[in-house]
Structures are given as structure tokens and as C-alpha cells.
């Protein structure tokens, strides 16, 4: 096959011929596509009406891409599908399988049309294949982007769940930290706590790190920064639940113990905070239970 000899005008003519062909065969090819997808069980979870509407739009959009060599409409459609949550409910097999099936349906139909003229068929595939590949790439990217969005949202939700700032009573916050802390999470924790101090007008904070398995010197330093920043805002911080390892890490980095008030466990920390706040220590357990519930 020799592209050079064919020339540009020839390719454009062929492109238009393919477009006309696909438009003419619209109903039968579309039916064939839906039929094949159903056989491959790719349409599960979709109503016949949804299938009909989506299939028509996707079919026409693909022909439009072939005609114009622009993929804006495909991108716009994929984006809209993502926004409507269509992509979210589908599996990657359904989406990519469906598009690959359409690709085959178009390809087979070209074979049917040109199989008597192999040179013409090769030229037709030259025009058609890059378009089909581009459309697949557009759809796959939209799908992946959507998945990444879902993952990001879930990560955010988990992060918020794992760092609750609780108000035990007026002026007192507790921040039980659970799980490993990296620099990014440590930073978010601090920002969250400092803003909570302001909104709750807190005078004392108990940070409980019983649930933190390891603390390196970087995180230990960060903990100290948090204590200092809270202090600048007028709140005292008490850290509870330091494991032997964590205590050793703090000693190793040479922590200034006059800056850090530590108490053995959360209960003791709250009692200490109460002393500072001038509350009488009484029924601490039930108050925490009430705060956790509320």
C-alpha cells in the first residue's frame, strides 16, 4: 500500500465515503452492536431505554469524529457520562468491552463492503483505525479520570474520619490520632486542630497518640510544632499515650520537655486538662461517651 501516491484528496474522498456508509447502515450496525454487547453480558444493570439512547449517541458521536477528525464531541460526551454518574456505576469491562465491540462492528462492516478490493479495504482501514483508536483512548481516559476522582474522594473521607477533633466540653478538645502519620497527614491534622481551637474557643487540647504505631523524628518535631502553634493561639496541649518507642524517639531528637506536657493515658490527660481549666474532675468517662455520641 502506498499512501504517498494516493494523495490527500483521495483520503478525504474515502473518509467521506466511510461516513456515508456508516450513516446509511446506522440502524442495522447499531442493532448488531447492542446484540453483541448483550451476548457478552456487557449491558447488565442498564435498562433497554438507557441502552438505546446511549448506543445511538455513542454511534453518532463516533461517526462525527471520523468525519471531522476532531474528538471534542467524544471528549464532551465522555465527560458528560462521567458527570451523570454513568461511568461510576459501570465496570471497566463494560466500558472498554463495549467500545471494543463497536470498533469490531465498524471494522467488520468495512470488510463486508470492501472485501472484493483489498487495496481499497486497506486504505479504508488506514482512515478508520486511527480514529477508532483515538476514540478508545478518549473513553478510557475519561473512565480512569473518573476512577481517580472516586479514589481521591474516598481518601479524603477516610482522612476526615481518621482524625476527628472532638469537643469534650466547653474549652476542651480531644484529638485521638489513629494509624500511621506521614508529613502530609501531620500537616492536615495540625491545620484542622488549629482551626478547631478557634471555632470552639478551646483553651485545652488533649492529643492522644495511643493509636500511632511509630513516630519518626520528623513527625515528633511536627508534634512539637503543633503544641507551639496551639500555645500561640492561647490553648494548652497535653499529649497522651506515648509508647516506649515514641518516647525514645522524642528523647533522641532532643525534645525540650518544658514545652511538652505529657500524661500516660487519655483519661489522665483529660483530668489534667480539667485541672487547668478549673473544672472539678467528675464523671469523666460518661462525658466522653456523651461527646463521642454527639
Amino acid at each position: 500500500m502506498d499512501k504517498g501516491r494516493r494523495g490527500k484528496g483521495n483520503t478525504e474522498g474515502l473518509r467521506q465515503e466511510l461516513v456515508t456508509h456508516f450513516r446509511g447502515e446506522r440502524n442495522s450496525l447499531r442493532r448488531e452492536w447492542v446484540h453483541q454487547m448483550t451476548a457478552k453480558r456487557l449491558l447488565e444493570g442498564m435498562t433497554p431505554q438507557e441502552t438505546e439512547a446511549e448506543a445511538a449517541t455513542i454511534y453518532d458521536t463516533c461517526v462525527e469524529c471520523l468525519e471531522t477528525a476532531h474528538y471534542d464531541s467524544a471528549e464532551a460526551y465522555a465527560k458528560k457520562m462521567a458527570e451523570r454518574g454513568v461511568l461510576r456505576g459501570m465496570t471497566s469491562e463494560q466500558i472498554l468491552g463495549g467500545m471494543l465491540t463497536l470498533r469490531d462492528v465498524y471494522g467488520r462492516s468495512l470488510f463486508g463492503k470492501y472485501h472484493t478490493d483489498m487495496a481499497r479495504l486497506a486504505a479504508a482501514l488506514d482512515v478508520y483505525e486511527p480514529v477508532a483508536n483515538n476514540i478508545l483512548a478518549v473513553v478510557a481516559m475519561a473512565f480512569i479520570r473518573e476512577r481517580e476522582n472516586v479514589v481521591r474522594q474516598q481518601q479524603e473521607a477516610i482522612r476526615e474520619l481518621s482524625t476527628p477533633v472532638l469537643q469534650v466540653r466547653e474549652g476542651l478538645l480531644i484529638l485521638p490520632i489513629i494509624g500511621l502519620i506521614d508529613s502530609l497527614r501531620a500537616k492536615q491534622l495540625t491545620e484542622q486542630l488549629l482551626h478547631a481551637i478557634r471555632t470552639n474557643r478551646a483553651k485545652a487540647v488533649v492529643i492522644d497518640i495511643t493509636g500511632v504505631p511509630a513516630v519518626d523524628s520528623k513527625i515528633a518535631n511536627h508534634l512539637l510544632q503543633t503544641v507551639d502553634a496551639a500555645r500561640l493561639m492561647g490553648a494548652r496541649v497535653i499529649v497522651t499515650g506515648l509508647s516506649p518507642d515514641v518516647a525514645q524517639a522524642l528523647v533522641y531528637i532532643g525534645v525540650d520537655l518544658t514545652r511538652l506536657k505529657t500524661v500516660g493515658d487519655l483519661q489522665g490527660g483529660i483530668e489534667e486538662a480539667d485541672k487547668f481549666l478549673g473544672y472539678k474532675v467528675d464523671m469523666v468517662g460518661s462525658t466522653i461517651a456523651a461527646a463521642m455520641k454527639g
Binding site: 491545620e191 488549629l194 481551637i197 510544632q225 503543633t226 507551639d228 500561640l232 492561647g234
Partner: peptide, 26 residues
């Protein structure tokens, strides 16, 4: 009084302190 959360955090990251001066929320 009145050091904002972002300002407080940025100060400690820069290594700035107010020594033993009292600070309060507002």
C-alpha cells in the same frame, strides 16, 4: 491575642516564637 491558625502554624514552621509572653485566643 488573636493569632490566627494559619499564622500560628506558619510561625512555628519558620521557627519564630514569642518567648514567654502570654498569648490568648481573643
Amino acid at each position: 491575642v488573636g493569632i490566627q491558625p494559619d499564622v500560628a502554624f506558619s510561625m512555628v514552621q519558620l521557627g519564630l516564637t514569642l518567648g514567654d509572653i502570654e498569648t490568648e485566643l481573643d
